[in-house]
Every structure is written in structure tokens, then in C-alpha cells.
């Protein structure tokens, strides 16, 4: 079976994306409070989606759709922090104390 370098790269990026998405799933379960979980949520959005979309762009090659894929990443990078900040801010307004390991 022939495997081109491109396919290796694509699979590599996909695995990376899956890995970070998996880490987020684990993190959401393991981490103690809303603030800590917001940290791990940005992992899916940045590297999880980012690496996966890079793989998609590689498969598509030079095409208009590729540009749209890159734009998708750009928009995620703008909306993710906005959403994470909104959640954290709401939690803080509700006077939710951050969890600490020493109390």
C-alpha cells in the first residue's frame, strides 16, 4: 500500500486534533470548577479545531474552499476567547469563588 507524504501529514494533523479534543473531554470531567474548565475548552477550539482544519485544508489543496477553511480558523480564534470570557465573567458576577487546592 502506497502512502504519500501528504497523507502522512494529514493523518498526523488529524490525530493531533483528536488528541487535544480528547484532552478537553477529560479536562471537563476532571477539573474542579467552572473557571478551570473554561481553560480546557479553549484547547478544543484552538488546537483541536485548528489542527483538524489544517488537515482539511491539506486534503482540499489550493482551492477557494481552502481559503474558507482558513477563515473558519480565524473566526474561531476570535469567537472562542469572547465566549470563554463571557462565561468566566458571568461566573465572577455570581460571586463564584475559584476552587483552590489548599482549602
Amino acid at each position: 500500500m502506497d502512502v504519500t507524504p501528504l497523507e502522512v501529514a494529514v493523518v498526523g494533523f488529524l490525530l493531533g486534533g483528536v488528541f487535544f479534543t480528547f484532552v478537553t473531554a477529560v479536562g471537563v470531567i476532571r477539573l474542579p470548577d467552572v473557571y478551570a474548565r473554561a481553560h480546557t475548552a479553549s484547547q478544543t477550539d484552538t488546537l483541536g479545531a485548528g489542527l483538524t482544519l489544517i488537515a482539511v485544508a491539506l486534503v482540499l489543496g489550493l482551492e477557494t474552499t481552502t481559503v474558507k477553511t482558513v477563515l473558519l480558523v480565524a473566526f474561531i480564534f476570535v469567537t472562542n476567547p469572547t465566549a470563554a470570557h463571557a462565561i468566566a465573567r458571568a461566573a465572577h458576577e455570581e460571586d463564584i469563588e475559584p476552587w483552590r487546592e489548599d482549602r
Partner: peptide, 22 residues
């Protein structure tokens, strides 16, 4: 936004130039 985008730091409040970061 850059602070929030990097996992491990999360901007919680911004008052003028004063930021609260988790």
C-alpha cells in the same frame, strides 16, 4: 483575547487597564 486564547490563562474581568486573570 490572546490571554484567553492560550490555555492556562483566562481573562475574567477588565476594568480600564486592570485585568483579572484566572
Amino acid at each position: 483575547n490572546s490571554i484567553t486564547l492560550t490555555p492556562g490563562t483566562l481573562t475574567v474581568r477588565v476594568h480600564g487597564r486592570r485585568m483579572m486573570v484566572h
